[in-house]
Design a protein around this nucleic acid. Sequence first.
DNA 1: TTGTAAGCGTTATCAT
DNA 2: ATGATAACGCTTACAA
Lengths: 354, 354
Amino acid sequence: MSSPRDKRRTKTASPAPARSVGLRDVARVAGVSTATVSRVINSPDTVSEELRARVNSVVRHLGWVPHGAARALATRRTQTIGAVFPTLTHGDFARAIQGLQNELSKSGRTLLLACSEYSPEQEYEQVRMLIERGVDAVLLVGEAHHRDLSELLEKNHIPYVNTFVYNAASHGTCVGPDNRKALYELTRYLIELGHRRFGVVAQTTENNDRAAARMRGIREALAEKGLAIEPRHFVHGFWTIQEGRNLFRRLLQDKPWPTAVICGNAYLTVGALLESQAMGIAVPGQMSIVGYDDIEIMAELPIPLTTVRVLSDEVGRRAARLLIAKLEGREIDESLECAAEIIVRQSSGPPPKG
Amino acid sequence: MSSPRDKRRTKTASPAPARSVGLRDVARVAGVSTATVSRVINSPDTVSEELRARVNSVVRHLGWVPHGAARALATRRTQTIGAVFPTLTHGDFARAIQGLQNELSKSGRTLLLACSEYSPEQEYEQVRMLIERGVDAVLLVGEAHHRDLSELLEKNHIPYVNTFVYNAASHGTCVGPDNRKALYELTRYLIELGHRRFGVVAQTTENNDRAAARMRGIREALAEKGLAIEPRHFVHGFWTIQEGRNLFRRLLQDKPWPTAVICGNAYLTVGALLESQAMGIAVPGQMSIVGYDDIEIMAELPIPLTTVRVLSDEVGRRAARLLIAKLEGREIDESLECAAEIIVRQSSGPPPKG
DNA sequence: TTGTAAGCGTTATCAT
DNA sequence: ATGATAACGCTTACAA
């Protein structure tokens, strides 16, 4: 008498690791069908009290861990979402990842992480790989991507979200601050303090539409008052503290100096301030220095820095909720625009007289 | 005439997303068997030039992306490795993740990320979930885990590695610096400068065996000279810059002050230095302040900080290589101990006279 | 070199 | 409420 189950283990002998306990074993030991075991796991309330208890006890006893790939194959869902960040060491992305992770784990989902190194090609490749790994949805940074990326995602029916960007035109696909508006307002704040001569220490805008939008905000606010940044007062490069120092020094090669210097990110800002102190410049008496993004050190330096605070972990969290909503076919009611709040500290003030 | 292929799509109509192109479609369009398509992907050189070209072109044309779960089910490998970090925002872990990621992607592997929030229970649960997700191997931080964790991993034949720890006794399972030795040597360095009265600003050692090992290193070095830390000169807490400031201030409540203060991590050190400056203490003239771990700001502050540099991204990279070697049944020849180098900057010097 | 078909460990349909 | 069994989309003996 050969039951259908005996079919297993007839031929195959893959070089892969020895198989361990499976749902089938649980079913056999518990004396129920595989369907019942599956139900106990996935919809316990459709199974009688008694069987549920029996199966659960066998599961624990045998130490069975369901095989995700098999489940994924059957359900065509992995409960995994993928994210591609330009870099992982930048403070705001790290915080976003933490928030994302937190929110996902609430619904038993996991994060599959990839890194584009600010290259659209690499971003495309990473997304492809994530899709191959079966992610249910994808989180991206920015809204400028490889030209084939959206097609790739749509062909595969993968919901996605662009983070750290927001503008009304793209509502529903973006979660983040409105970069342009944030720096528009920061610049207005400085103009209202009386500043007219501005310097900018920026990170390169190549493959970084967030940084580009921020530059736009600055320029628009200035243009409204008939102002502009002199070319020699616009310097840009990488984004470390070191680079901030170097760029700041370059900015001040010739007089007259700008009375206000806007920096493109937290690290550049810290660098600029430290260099200004090394050069003996009085901040804000002689010059105001402001930044974008808020990392802890900015508030702790001897001259605490005025900056724009974005709650990056909130960006991650909201992006997660948006993706989950999309997966469940729900509409989302919460706002997708994240506040970008100007935190005025001691590094900004009116320009020097005369 | 009904070919066996016609069996598909008889019953099932899952609520899951519409299926898209599959290997079967590629095979059909290219006029070859499914086996051939599979071979073109996995061992191209066993297929004739002609078919290979034809299949590849159909793959591109149809935009087929192989289904990872199906492949994982068949091969029992996911090419994914899991990592559980206590937190993701701490600088050294972020760098390790970056290194890990980098090294994994070289061999087409991906990182599945989880976070334990310094809780052994949560770590255990996260590992369980990673196993369920089918990770081929697991990276952990530290070597003190939930009591059932190693059994869980071993029962499931999952290779793993403990990172950010190293001691000769556990060679082969650990990749990282020898925390005890690193702080033993840092303390020796201070003793040799002439310091006798030490203060420690530590992060809590609860669920953090790395921090505990570092404390041991300090105490051993002191004990060798018949020295010890006065209880009131040992303060500990969380690990932010803020906390560093607070703890430092508490440390100096009564005189006589320690002449050397050792901090448990980079953020605490920065906080301690900033607070010392706010208090008008001369560093290093009046007091030396040293730290553990090296983040960029430490080198850039007005008084650059002496600290222990650990190449965290190298920890991530080596851990990845070790895991891959284990998966491939290879022995690894490179060292698993990562250097912990004392970087002497300006914050340390001889104690004040008298 | 290429094709056939069994099997990977689940879920879900259908019947009971 | 439970059981039998056909998918899920791929890999890989084994046969040709």
